[in-house]
Amino acid sequence: MRSAAVTDFSQYAQLRAQARSDDPAALRATAKQFEALLLQQMLKSMRAASLGDDVLGGEQTQFYQEMFDQQIAQHLAAGRGLGIADLMIRQMQNGDVSRQTSDVRRDPVSTLAPLPRASESSVSPSSQALANAASVDAAPLASHGSRLTPHEFVRSILPYAEKAAAELGIPARVLVAQAALETGWGQQMMRRADGRPAFNYFGIKADTRWQGEKVQTMTREFENGEMRRRSAEFRAYDSRAAAFDDYVRFLKSNPRYAQALRHGGDAARFTSGLQKAGYATDPAYARKIQHIADGQTMKAALQAARPVRLIQT
């Protein structure tokens, strides 16, 4: 792949034209230009860190040196580069996934147990939709051996989130968002010692009240404003349905969350109530859930998941 000369300004006009026509090639070209700018800044910083000025140099030498650096940066970016352009392309093709997941915990972080946050509707899903979902309820999240996309993650838990959300009286997307926050959109699910998924979507710990299976894993908790890693035991479930059912029971049976459940259908009031009750040590827990619930990644995933279920029914 040959690089254009930095003095050829027609390349930028062509790039603007491609962008206006939604040409897919414009995405790669823009990413390459961005990487070239970064490389140019790196070269400039390296020269600025030199021990002293060239005694034979001057303004004219500096001018041509800068042009040379710009051309070298363009040439390097036109090839394999540093991989920055490829990373940008993957991120932009996934919409705002990177922005959304920047707030996602890679490990369960709650002090006690997780709570739900729902979606656009608190209407209970049809029995047929749940029956369809039950056929894959206990299946691994990524049986094909690859990582889940946000769309696949939402599709795998949406029927159970809608059922639980209907019982709690909140939008289903909130519960999906909380599960996404706790599990990194399903990519950081807790697993048993033999590798089977624990289906713990809400970071609920296995305290003395829990008589079921447990899984030991590392978690992150805030203490005195600082995040610390600790090992803790969490509840393990046989299926997605069991996980969401237990989440509802956990909230309703625990008096400390009574105020959170008096949300009046207000999702923000529900999540802030969970945080105030000590559901998680993260001081931004409620805000992070709302951020994911209202994000474009969630909206696109819900739109992609629901038509499939409508066809099945």
Rank of each mutant, 00 (worst) to 15 (best):
M1K: 07
M1I: 10
R16L: 14
A17Y: 05
S21L: 09
L27F: 08
L27H: 05
T30W: 05
K32P: 04
A36G: 01
L38K: 03
L43R: 07
M46N: 12
A49W: 10
A49D: 15
D53V: 09
L56D: 04
Q60G: 11
Q60I: 13
T61V: 14
Q62F: 10
F68K: 10
Q71H: 13
Q71E: 15
I72M: 14
I72V: 15
G79D: 13
G79A: 14
G79S: 13
R80I: 10
L87V: 13
M88I: 12
R90T: 13
N94Q: 15
V97H: 04
R99M: 12
R99Q: 13
D103N: 11
D107G: 03
T111C: 01
L112G: 01
S119R: 05
Q128T: 11
A129G: 04
A129Q: 08
A133G: 02
A134S: 13
A138H: 04
A142W: 09
A142C: 11
G145R: 07
E152W: 00
E152Y: 00
E152M: 01
I157V: 14
P159Y: 00
A161R: 01
E162T: 10
K163M: 10
K163Y: 07
A165I: 02
E167R: 10
G169Q: 04
P171N: 00
P171V: 00
V174L: 13
V174P: 02
A179L: 05
E182W: 02
E182K: 02
E182T: 03
E182H: 01
Q187W: 04
R196K: 10
F199Y: 11
F202L: 03
I204D: 01
E213Q: 10
T219L: 05
E221Q: 12
F222H: 06
F222Q: 10
E223N: 11
E223K: 13
N224P: 01
R229T: 15
A232P: 00
R235L: 09
A236F: 09
Y237H: 05
Y237M: 06
D238A: 10
A242R: 07
F244S: 01
Y247F: 12
R249C: 12
L251T: 03
K252A: 06
N254M: 06
P255F: 01
R256P: 00
A260T: 03
A260Y: 02
L261S: 04
R262E: 15
G265C: 08
D266K: 09
D266E: 14
A267N: 15
A268Y: 07
R269K: 10
F270K: 02
G273D: 06
L274A: 06
Q275P: 07
K276L: 14
G278R: 02
A280P: 01
A284R: 15
A284K: 13
A286F: 00
R287M: 09
K288A: 09
I289W: 05
Q290H: 08
I292K: 03
Q296N: 12
Q296F: 07
T297V: 15
M298K: 06
L302S: 02
Q303H: 11
A304S: 13
R309D: 12
I311Q: 14
